[in-house]
Amino acid sequence: MSIATRDTNELVIRSRGMAKNFGSVKAVQNLDLDIERGKIYGFLGPNGCGKTTSIRMLTGLLTPSEGQVDVLGMRLPEQASKLRYHIGYMTQVFSMYRDLTVRENLSFVAKIYGIHGTAQSTRIDELLQLYNLEELANHFAGLMSGGQRQRLALAAAVLHKPQLLFLDEPTSAVDPESRRDFWEKLFDLSEAGTTILVSTHYMDEAERCHALAILEHGIKRADGSPQALMEEMNAHVVELQSDNNRQVKQALISHPEVISAAQLGTRLRVLVDKTIEQPDTWLQNQLPSEDYRSLKRVRPSLEDVFVTCTGKGQG
């Protein structure tokens, strides 16, 4: 984890054609990933798009139906048992023991990783402090709130100081305040050199990642840094103000060039295909002028990227 290796953009995860079928269900199809060391990489997609299945294949818990997977230079699933010492995994479903206390849970995980004696108690105290769990040390994990459980699960996942951390929808059961704190912790870990792969269905979280992949029905629709994705997006974004949003929306989405029109309060956010060079004038031509009060082009957001590359917007 020296500076030198970080500069060379060494690949921590590399997959080619990774796929998983459950019977006739194609949970993940032909997934190519190149994830660099030290990055926070996101999997963005709705429920059932294959995020958990992908993470399980990358951790060696599931055997891919097809494709080649290398994680930390180890070939999966053959070298899965060797990989276990170097990765941490926070599962989507809370997987700590509910009838053990916070400290007992951490101590259990520590022993499993061969950390004992004073090294263990020092590390656990450090984690309890870092993740605000000191007062909860003797509480049963099963009786804690979503945010507290999440901090415990993260503490357990990083206990053995893994180089690579997998987080599966870590913030789905957590309030916005805790989510913000949680991301602070992730940036601290990333700063210290840990590579993080995090799955989410929240746009704002995805936007914090250094790079991300947008998944739909097990297929990667796009990947890259959030900025690049927004710049290279296949659509223009126009916002218009109108009094009868619903009617205008109905009128607009009947045009094949309009990818989507979403209501945001009194505004209507319209995505127009890139083939239209002047989307504002084009829209003005499509709509009678009394239908809207104002009309202007705006900067795209990650949500716009998501809409354009999934569902109707996709190729």
Binding site: Y89, T91, S95, Y97, I112, Y113, G114, A156
Partner: peptide, 13 residues
């Protein structure tokens, strides 16, 4: 059933 298995099998146990 309690979801602990995924944690266990991801460890060197």
């Amino acid at each position: 059933e309690h979801g602990n298995l995924e944690l266990l099998i991801n460890t060197p146990l």
